[in-house]
Amino acid sequence: MKIARGFLKPCFIVAGIATVLAAVIGGITSGATAAWAAPAGVALAALGFAGSVWAIALAEKFDLRLTLPMALITYSVKLALVLTLLTIVNSAVPNALLPFAYGIIGGAVAWLATQVVWAYKAKIPYIELDQRS
């Protein structure tokens, strides 16, 4: 799994760029509220994806069969967390809801696109090879 987690660094780099772009675009289009809400959404998406990777990698250390249940659990927790945060943002700062949601969507698209490009270029063997000296 260590080889398969190599996408984290490029994904975080792209998420950082997307965060800056979200702040600039949000600030230009919708003002100061969007300038913090949109990048917060991007950060939430990036941290959610990274948290899933780390949780699944931890489950794999115990038993490979635990990876699917852990993936489903982390997905459920992330979905509940996002819905809760959207509700909180809507009640606290209603103007920030749309930029925050756009940031989440933009962050997810940026992360997943980077991961797809990385997976396409990666040389991951389909079988485990012995480490011979």
Rank of each mutant, 00 (worst) to 15 (best):
A50Y: 15
A101S: 14
A4W: 11
V24S: 04
L72A: 08
A46H: 03
A80N: 05
G41K: 02
P39R: 11
K9H: 09
D63N: 15
K9D: 03
A18C: 09
I127Q: 12
I28L: 15
A46F: 00
G16D: 08
A18V: 01
A45H: 12
T67C: 08
Y120C: 01
I73L: 14
L129T: 08
Q131C: 01
W36N: 01
V109H: 04
P125Q: 04
Y120S: 04
S76R: 13
L112D: 07
F100Y: 12
W118C: 01
F12C: 09
G31A: 08
R132D: 15
K123D: 06
V117N: 05
K121R: 15
A32I: 12
K123M: 07
L86T: 03
L86H: 04
V117S: 03
G103T: 09
A46D: 03
I17R: 00
T67Y: 04
F100P: 13
A101G: 06
G103L: 05
T33H: 10
G51I: 13
A50I: 11
R5V: 00
I127L: 12
I25T: 13
V89F: 07
A43N: 02
A92H: 05
A59I: 00
A57R: 10
A18S: 10
T33M: 05
I13G: 03
L8N: 02
I124M: 01
T84L: 15
L79H: 06
I127K: 13
G103I: 01
V116P: 00
N90R: 14
V93D: 13
G103D: 07
A50G: 08
Q115Y: 04
A110Y: 06
L58M: 12
G41C: 07
W118Q: 03
F7S: 00
Y75K: 12
A45W: 06
P99Y: 02
P125T: 06
F12E: 01
I28P: 08
I124A: 05
V93E: 15
D130W: 06
V20P: 08
